[in-house]
Amino acid sequence: MVPINLIIKADNLVKRYNNLTAVDNISFYVKEGEMFGFLGPNGAGKTTTMKMIQCVSPKTSGKLEVFGMDVSTHQREIKKYMGVVPQENNLDPDFTVYENLRNYSRYFDISMEEAEKRIEELLNFVQLIDKKNSTTEYLSGGMKRRLVLARALLNNPRLIVLDEPTVGLDPQARHLIWEKLRALKKKGVTIVLTTHYLDEAEKLCDRLVVMDYGKIIVEGEPSQIIKDHIGTGVVEVDNYPELVECLQKSDSIYEVMGDIIVIYTNDPVHITNQLSMECSLDKMTTRKATLEDVFLKLTGRKLRD
């Protein structure tokens, strides 16, 4: 049963740039209060999908509704309740930190007094209050990202769309952003994000999709996806031709990834025993299966451009 309180609903959504199909007939939904992730290699179509949700890039065909409204006819209404963190920072270099927010709040018809109050709150929230009067050009990458997040929250959005919110940030800054996103989720804000950090997606997202070549190839809860595609554990061993032969005889599921072999399993102990007995192998690493394993298994190891 699909619940009724859907914040985003996409049906057979397609986006073509001239001959290139960037988003190829995808369907998905995002429930209210959910943290929803888009993963996928470079060029998979994540940003293109975000831009259609943000009502700035018109869809080629299909259906896309945000807050129950059609993106092609209700842009202004939808954008009023949405916060956007774009892939590329677009802070206004002509303004200071404070002026950036002050100016942006005008676009949302927020009154002067109300804006002052919210700016103060938000700068505290993203820990930039000391930088209030700095020029944005002189902020570090992490500070810029936090300021963009603060800017996206000015209008108290019901939905925030973040395109790679933690790209290029150090672990401290990433953790801070995660913490802020969780705090927002607690307040009932619906969050949609894209990321290349699979640990991030695994930690944060209630549900996610993996896109590749414009299509959705997997959809579901992170833990369930891992279980379905990999199992609970992974055993990694060095790659020898004899070992491959030995593995072929057993019925284990494995993948050769350059100089290592990755074996997917629900029973790592059994596999390690089997390997050391039958294949006379003693150097093995056992670890928990992660989203990264699923990602690499499904999208392959080939580099995208």
Partner: peptide
């Protein structure tokens, strides 16, 4: 260069 227009169209302005 400044992507000012992009930032603005993410708000109720078109």
């Amino acid at each position: 260069y400044q992507k000012t227009f992009d930032a603005i169209v993410a708000t109720p302005l078109i």
